[in-house]
Structure formats: structure tokens, C-alpha cells
Design a protein around this nucleic acid. Structure first.
Lengths: 226, 226
DNA sequence: AAATCGGCCTGATGTAAATCAACTCAAGGT
DNA sequence: ACCTTGAGTTGATTTACATCAGGCCGATTT
């Protein structure tokens, strides 16, 4: 079983039983959807390669990005409460997924307690991630938000194709801005600023983190102007 | 079993089994804590009466409110992922809780599948709530944020002591502001503005919603200035 | 009754980010 | 080779909200 699909924390024997659940789907094209908001909840998904954006449409019809998912990460839990997905999930690039039908996972959980426990933890991770985002959105500057996002992506892409300092942003500036509660222009300007400060080297969607410490410091205390 | 402690959705026979898990605690005093960030995760809690604020401390030591919980609502799921609570939870007023030890709930879930399923749904509700907050924090004005919060509290307090239009805010202006990513002054000014517009009657922590429709319209489309 | 303190309100001023607008650049299309 | 289109950048201007500062009021202390 590919450890990318369901991360560690289970007995190998239990892992074997999990493997049978997983359906490998043929790769998604960029912009292709995994599920749409409102559809009946059937499965959760693990990213094998590529990346996923999830978003909802709020009262006034505006799109709100709620998460980006990279290889090894799971998404789709938001559908569990109402038996319908709350978000729409689409591929940001060519992306392959593992589909894990919830029904089967649930049955397996009923017979193997350790699986059940593990699934709960996975769900609760999504809660922690969301709460971190809340903290970020509620009392931080544009610079702090962007620094946080870049460091988060960098951390999550360790053990991936690119090193932790060279990374490829699969989403547009607009999608970053939407996620962080900023406009495209602000995202662009802050990236420019970071570049001038030699914190980053930016080339379109390719980012090299030159000064990780500076970015981390920025998150702790707002930047001094010079 | 008090339906306030665990809402409906289970067979009555299963409910009986759940009841034995629940430990009723003696009421908490205002500002008394339920658990502290970093403590080992043991239980989830249901609010019987009163209200709870949960918050975390971020990198720079600032407090960030992540949720308010009212009668009938559950909190503490954030501790599941790491086996330690991420947030601190304190009572905003004299508050009584049901404690539901997770270990016992988990065991029960292993023997009764419907309980397990139900617990999952409860967790996933927290995810949905968090994602709604994210959407609110990321692209909305101070007026929209406050209108949303007031309507949300009003909805959640239906079937409670006060009617859906007269409500008592147990938290301070500062706590509201922190939660919504606003300053105390802004909260105060927006409440004043809503009052002048006759959307609300505000008397300290007592709020009467006079024009629910106006508030709802405000959320959909930003206010016109006159 | 005077003093202290915290929560809340209000006004003046400052500023970060939004908005508006123009321009560049690369990718397709005809 | 020329036109379109969309993503990204950059500059000028505006604005919503933060910040700073003062004052009010009810509760608690002395």
C-alpha cells in the first residue's frame, strides 16, 4: 500500500485491510472537479500527486477558498455532517487521487478499532488546520498571512518532489488572495516586497525561499519599516 | 438522558447506553477554565447552560478566540488529533457542562456502530462551523461580520431561555472583536451604527434584533451609504 | 465620598490594503 | 504577423478600519 495514500500510524496488518478499500482513479485534468458542493457525500480522497483546491460559494455568490491539499493529504471530510459535500473540490493541475469510500471505511472501522481511532484523528486534524487558518485570518497583516502560507506549503512539501526551499505554487495569485482574504494586487505587491528584501526569489509560480528565518520572524512580530 | 447533552439522531436504546458515560460536573464560575491548551485530551464537553469561549495563543503570544459555545453545543474536538487540547476553554458566565470521557465514548462506539457514526457527524459539524468562520473572516466588512455573528447567535439560541430576537451576549466587546478580527472600537461603532439604523436595540450586553431582514441583506451585499 | 479600575463609547488622525487604472507578457487563435 | 485573452505587475488614489486619546459609567476598594 502506498504510504502516500494513508499516512502512518496503523499496524501493518490493519494497513493491508485498508488497502482493499482504496480505488485509484485515473488522473484528473487541471480544473476538473472531484466533487461539487451539494453532491451526496460518498468518499474521502487522498492526494497522490498534484494538488487540490476546495472552496464554497457564500450567500452573495462569491467563491471562498477553504483549503489547498497536497500529496499525502486528505480532503472531503466536510461532507460528513450533512451527508452532502459543503465544498467543491477541483484539481489545480494534473492530479491523481485515491478514493476511499466512506461506507467501506466505516465498516472496516467497526471491525477494527484502531482504524476507527485513526480515522477520528484524521478528521480532527482538519479541525486543527481550519483553526490555524482562522487565527491567521483574524489578526494578521498581508505580509504575515503570505509568509505563513509559504512556510506552510514549504513544510508540507518536504518529502515531495521539490526541496523545502524551492517550491511550485499550483494556484493563481487570485486564489492565494481569496484564501488569505487579500486582493490579487496585494499578493503581488507583497511577493514583490519579499523579493526586494531577498526573502524570496519569485519567478511566476516558482518560488525559492532564500531566508526562511526572516519569514518566520515576520510572523511573530510585524515588520519594521526602513 | 438530557437531550441538551447529546442531541437526537440515535435509537433510544443506544441513548440509554450513552447516558452512563456522562459525568455531570458542578457548575463553573465565570472565567473558570474547562481545560487548558496543552493539557492531555480526555473528554469532550457539552454545554448544558451558560456559555464557553475557546481560544488559542499564537506564535507572538496573542490570544485568538476560535469559538463560542452555547447550550446544546459540543466542544473539545480539537484535542483529538494530538491527544492534547490545542485550545483553552473557559466559562463566560456561570456554566454547567456534561463531560463525556472520550475513552468511554470510543469503546461504546466500537460496540454500537450507530454511535460511532453519530460521533463522526458531530466532529464534522465542527469542521463546517470553522469553515463558515473562515469564509466570514476572509472577504467581509466589519458590518457583515457583526451581522453574521449576531444572526448566528440568535439562531443558536432559538429554543433557549431568550427568544430569537432578544439575546444576551455573554462575551465582552473585546472578545467579539478578537473573534471577528476587529478592534473593540470598531465593534462598538458598528453596534452604534446598527442601533441608529434601527436594526438593533443595544443595552450593554443585551441585544434586541429589530430588523432581522436588514441584517441578512447586509450579509449578502455591503451597505449603501446615504 | 473619594479613588481606582475595567468595560464601553466617541472623536481625531493615521495607515494598510482595497480600488481603480494602465501596462506587460505569454499563450492561443485566425 | 496580428489580434485576442487572461494572469500578473505596478502606480495613484481612496477608504475602511486601526490606532491614539479622551471621557463616561458602574462596580469595587478605601
Amino acid at each position: 500500500m502506498n504510504s502516500i495514500c494513508l499516512p502512518v500510524g496503523l499496524d501493518p496488518s490493519d494497513l493491508d485491510k485498508l488497502e482493499v478499500l482504496i480505488e485509484r482513479k485515473k488522473p484528473l485534468q487541471p480544473r476538473e472537479s472531484v466533487f461539487l458542493s451539494g453532491e451526496p457525500f460518498t468518499s474521502i480522497y487522498a492526494v497522490r500527486s498534484g494538488s487540490i483546491k476546495s472552496f464554497c460559494i457564500d450567500a452573495d455568490g462569491r467563491e471562498q477558498v477553504t483549503g489547498f491539499y497536497f500529496p499525502g493529504e486528505l480532503f472531503g471530510w466536510d461532507g460528513l455532517a450533512n451527508e452532502h459535500y459543503q465544498n467543491t473540490a477541483i484539481a489545480l493541475e494534473t492530479t491523481s487521487l485515491c478514493e476511499i469510500p466512506y461506507e467501506k471505511l466505516d465498516n472496516l472501522g467497526n471491525s477494527i478499532p484502531s482504524v476507527q481511532k485513526y480515522v477520528m484523528k484524521l478528521i480532527s486534524r482538519e479541525i486543527n488546520a481550519d483553526q490555524q487558518l482562522i487565527a491567521l485570518l483574524a489578526g494578521n497583516s498581508a505580509q504575515q498571512k503570505l509568509a505563513s502560507l509559504l512556510l506552510s506549503i514549504s513544510d508540507r512539501l518536504v518529502q515531495q518532489k521539490l526541496s523545502s526551499t524551492r517550491l511550485w505554487l499550483p494556484m493563481s495569485r487570485g486564489e492565494i488572495g481569496n484564501y488569505l482574504g487579500l486582493t490579487v494586487e496585494t499578493v503581488s505587491r507583497v511577493l514583490g516586497h519579499f523579493q526586494r528584501k531577498k526573502y524570496l526569489a519569485v519567478n511566476k509560480k516558482e518560488i525559492e525561499i532564500l531566508d526562511k528565518k526572516a519569514l518566520r520572524d515576520l510572523i511573530r512580530s510585524p515588520e519594521e519599516v526602513e
